[in-house]
């Protein structure tokens, strides 16, 4: 479904040149879920942004469904690939009701029976019709992220790019959103690319994943391998270690 070949992203030039992504490659099968893990500055979010056209592709190729994407992306691309952002407080227009937010993509693509599709989209993400005319400030963080997911799904895309979709949410709300994403993937046959700093979240949602560090791919591995603690690279092992929480180590064993 997705084929990323040797992707590089460079911002700026000369002294201000930043190599955000350096020759990263991975493939995602239709219906699969792929994770990108790394810390801040690892370039994991930039990969997502380059796929959907928010960041430039400086070198390499991005293929969606076997075809190389064009810049600027055409409308057909946006019907295939959609994205969910990290911060649900920033990704919804503060002056638009849920109704307006959800009807916008339908209007852009000239879709019919907007009313029914909006109500269906709300139902899919577990919200009732009573949410339709609310403003973002009348919603909780979790509800906002559900609206953002509904917006991404309303055009029936095949690929969903998820940029830290739960890191701004409370733990209990995170569980609900993760369950929703899990469920939607099975029901709608979606392909996911998930970016997260949280190994446990990636392992929960994805089968395969790529560990990134400072713009480079460190190691591609599977969730199963991660669970067993098997990792070829020292950095991956350090990440696994860190995700176990704080240990007092030799000073005072917990």
């Amino acid at each position: 479904m997705l084929d990323i070949q040797n992707l590089s992203v460079v911002f700026g030039a000369g002294r201000l040149r930043v190599d955000a992504v350096k020759g990263v490659s991975f493939q995602v099968e239709p219906g699969a879920s792929f994770g990108l893990v790394g810390e801040s500055g690892s370039g994991k979010s930039t990969v997502l942004r380059a796929i959907c056209g928010l960041a430039p592709i400086s070198a390499g190729r991005v293929l969606v469904g076997g075809e190389e994407v064009r810049s600027p992306r055409d409308k057909a691309f946006y019907r295939t690939v959609q994205m969910v952002f990290q911060d649900p407080y920033a990704s919804l227009h503060p002056r638009h009701t849920v109704d307006r937010t959800l009807s916008e993509p339908l209007a852009i693509h000239g879709e019919k029976n907007a009313e029914a599709r909006i109500l269906e989209a709300l139902r899919e993400v577990g919200l009732g019709p009573s949410f339709r005319f609310r403003y973002p400030h009348q919603l909780s963080g979790g509800q906002r992220q559900r609206i953002a997911i509904a917006r991404a799904l309303i055009l029936r895309p095949k690929v969903l790019l998820l940029d830290e979709p739960t890191s701004a949410l409370d733990a209990s709300v995170q569980a609900e959103v993760l369950n929703l994403l899990d469920d939607l993937r099975v029901r709608l046959g979606l392909t996911y690319v998930l970016v997260s700093h949280d190994l446990a979240v990636v392992a929960h949602l994805c089968e395969r994943l790529l560990v990134m560090r400072q713009g480079e791919a460190v190691e591609e591995t599977t969730a199963v391998a991660l669970r067993s603690g098997a990792a070829a690279d020292a950095y991956t092992r350090a990440l696994i270690q860190a995700s176990q929480g704080f240990t007092r180590g030799a000073v005072a064993p917990a």
């Binding site: 733990a171 369950n179 469920d183 392992a203 929960h204 669970r227 696994i240 176990q244």
Partner: peptide, 12 residues
């Protein structure tokens, strides 16, 4: 409710 690296519970 936290996803855990060690065991795979789903749904959470």
């Amino acid at each position: 409710c936290l996803p855990k690296l060690q065991d795979d519970v789903r749904p959470l």
